[in-house]
């Protein structure tokens, strides 16, 4: 078994997604570079990947969010950018995880609308709650259970 020596130890990587009518990922990258202060930035088709020590990445994300708060979305990533186990330059096809992002990307505009509307109504505005759901599954009828037990016993 080969020894594994990790890279970028002690850093965090975060995805930044932008779904904005007024800013492209390229423009976001240029503005992020201006404020990067040592954070590694990789531009992608949907936004950026930021890698660095946690404090620096969090500070840069606060800065980036201020560019277009309701159109920029952030999440954690486990792998550093360009990792051969994930990068599609080595694997071909869509990067693992991309299809999940693509699925959620389609509904980001609804989330943006929600954030804008809540900003407009203010902190204390009454907003009707979404229906809180539990997964509804048909329960096994007690008589049916009894029948099953009796059938099994016979």
């Amino acid at each position: 078994m080969a020894e594994y020596i990790p890279k970028y130890v002690g850093t965090i990587t975060k995805y930044v997604f932008i779904e904005s009518p007024s800013m492209t990922p390229g423009e976001l990258a240029l503005r992020a570079y201006e404020a990067s202060e040592g954070v590694l930035i990789k531009e992608t088709c949907f936004g950026l990947q930021l890698t660095g020590v946690p404090e620096a990445v969090d500070r840069l994300i606060d800065e980036i969010r201020s560019f277009d708060p309701t159109h920029i979305f952030v999440k954690d990533r486990g792998f550093p950018p360009g990792d051969p186990r994930r990068c599609r330059a080595n694997l071909g096809g869509a990067r693992p995880g991309y299809l999940g992002h693509e699925r959620e990307f389609r509904i980001l505009r609804y989330i943006t609308r929600g954030l804008e509307e809540l900003d407009r109504r203010g902190e204390d505005a009454e907003v009707p709650e979404a229906e809180v759901l539990r997964e509804k599954r048909p329960l096994l009828d007690i008589k049916r259970l009894q029948e099953l037990i009796e059938t099994e016993e016979q």
Partner: peptide, 22 residues
């Protein structure tokens, strides 16, 4: 625990974000 469904339109988007914020 908060249990929700993904929004399928803008109105549901507002409700979704409001429920999460609350």
């Amino acid at each position: 625990i908060l249990e929700l469904k993904y929004p399928t339109n803008e109105e549901e988007g507002i409700l979704f974000v409001a429920a999460v914020r609350k």
